[in-house]
Design a binder for these strands. Structure first.
Lengths: 202, 202, 202, 202
DNA sequence: CATGAATGAGACTTCATTCAT
DNA sequence: AATGAATGAAGTCTCATTCAT
């Protein structure tokens, strides 16, 4: 019991650090963010951070992994409900956008620090993240392929990637200039686009 | 005459540095790349770099701007030839992919160092680059809208962004695992997808 | 309690650095003195210096300001005791000389690095120091003017400046060739000189 | 003849450089002045400077020596004319002030770069300058002593140094705030002060 | 003579990480 | 467990001086 409580408190603190650090990393970028700043933001000392994370990189990647897993689970749940390709695509678009909007710090982190991820010397971590991303994609791809039309020249994998790429760029645009973009409208447009293409109304 | 030659040689050297630096920035990322390393790669001394670029940041952004402008011109030419929406989309996909493939160092740079761009303290540069990107998009959007079907619920801007987002993600996948991806095939799929959507063959 | 001790130790260390740095700046001049050298002299690492001073310039000016204030207070006390013009002039000469002799590192610093002070890009600091020097002078001038003879064509301000200028040059001569100069003698001569001029004994 | 002309032109150029460099050194200080800047100011290239001066230090000290000698000659002439102690002191004050005012760049240089002079690693140069300054002082001292009152407790050397020190500080004050100081008035006050002291009017 | 591109040693400063308290 | 003073490696940038043209 005693140790359970302790364990819980420790976990709580870890989460707290992760959340605060995510904000500050997102706002300033990995390199411009000092451990000093993270510590201050968390209300702890620098030393305390090192009781929970081995290094600045470890802290950084812990944030990413945490959220990537969360996104994966959320998406998986959403896609399971879909009964046809239309619902599948709509669910993907809706869920991924919503996740990015509610976790825009995370989104910004991933976009801004792609380089950190690709160039880290911790190759284990790098491979693991690329792997994770791949599984994420496969999961989506598999879910969509269940309702995929026969004889389509388009592969489910290509479709999935395309949709994700689109969502990324629209989210980024929205982050840079929120007022100029109506996300609800975009979601509808994208669903229409990926279902029927641009020539439906010709 | 004398000074012309000198000017030409100077320009030549500048280009040389830009090209070498692009490679090394792409390979290692902005922060992990030292001016020392760039200098060595160029076969010059550190000091020589500063004869052409005010700072490491200036060097970095000069690379980006150079290539972004080049891409803009290339794309504009390609889109002008298009006579209908099909040709327009195909041209966009073809040209942008080709540019990224032949300039994959540049592509990697942009993807990896998005954060550098977004978080630079040189706000003038930041605004200028975002502006440039916006114009790029507008240009594409305008070109496509010329052949756009009446009554489409999809805006040319949304379509353009979506296609660019897709190209980005596919290019990145290809860079990470070139053997698993047939780019020619992807180009065709994307053209099909954005013209007719996924339900054409239902 | 705990924090009091810490604060005291911190202050102690700051003072220690100031004192050691003063020596080395005086010996080598501002530009030739490296932070590395200061650190070594202090027995700390380079980084430790930056825990107490924002920059090399900050360290330098902190030394100056500290001592200038100290000199001001010392002089003010001495001048207050004077009951007539003779005592005033004698006190000024005695006190300022003594201060320079016991703080000859400081004196050398001010003489040698006048340029650093006049040309610093930190205009705030520059103005502040010139201001301080001015107040110093005004204070002396005021103190002397209390006992000033009526109808003198000489202003207290001119007298004060003149005495200070003389002290500077004699101190410098003494520093450069201590054995050739009897400071006690000089003090007496100067008192006589400023009281009665050179023609008294004609 | 040919070579005479050449020699003259060479000498002319040397003088030109000395004069321009004096200005810029005075304005910015020795360390902040780059050879690049001197070259530009002179309208020559950096390399050209090195045809006339061995190094930046050599250039700097050449300026000083040139002017110190000039001052020495000017002062010697003036003091020779003096027929009594009053004229001697008046001549010293008048001449030295005038020289500093017409050559205020030089004055500023000497004041600002005292440290450069005292701390130069070129000990030969340092000794030579200190020596020069000493001779300068001796010359003044000797000139004044000719008309010196018998039995004065004040040595000519002390008097000379004191006057020079006063002139330095008043010139500096005047340079920093020209409008607040009436130099003609100061000259008169100083003459009065050093002749009769402050108690004459008691 | 004159040039100015090139050099490269060297200085300041930052900051992740450690460890004595 | 928590702290934060201390470290020291590493990186950017400057600039006096040289030398091929």
């Amino acid at each position: 019991m005693q140790s359970e409580k302790k364990e819980a408190r420790r976990e709580q603190k870890r989460r707290d650090i992760l959340q605060r650090a995510e904000q500050i990393f997102a706002r300033q970028g990995f390199h411009s963010t000092t451990m000093e700043a993270v510590a201050e933001e968390c209300g702890w000392s620098k030393g305390a951070l090192y009781l929970h994370f081995e290094s600045k990189e470890d802290l950084f990647f812990s944030i990413i992994i945490e959220k990537v897993d969360q996104l994966g689970r959320t998406l998986e749940d959403a896609l399971e409900q879909a009964e046809d390709i239309e619902q599948g695509i709509a669910a993907l678009i809706q869920t991924q956008f919503d996740f990015f909007v509610s976790n825009n710090d995370f989104f910004q982190l991933v976009v801004s620090e792609q380089g950190k991820i690709l160039h880290t010397s911790d190759t284990g971590m790098r491979e693991s993240l690329i792997q994770k991303q791949h599984q994420h994609l496969e999961m989506i791809s598999l879910a969509l392929s269940k309702h995929f039309p026969e004889g389509s020249p388009i592969q489910a994998l290509t479709l999935s990637r395309s949709i994700l790429g689109s969502i990324n760029i629209h989210t980024l645009s929205w982050l840079l200039a929120p007022l100029t973009i109506d996300l609800e409208q975009i979601k509808n447009e994208l669903t229409e686009l990926y279902l029927y293409g641009v020539k439906r109304h010709v």
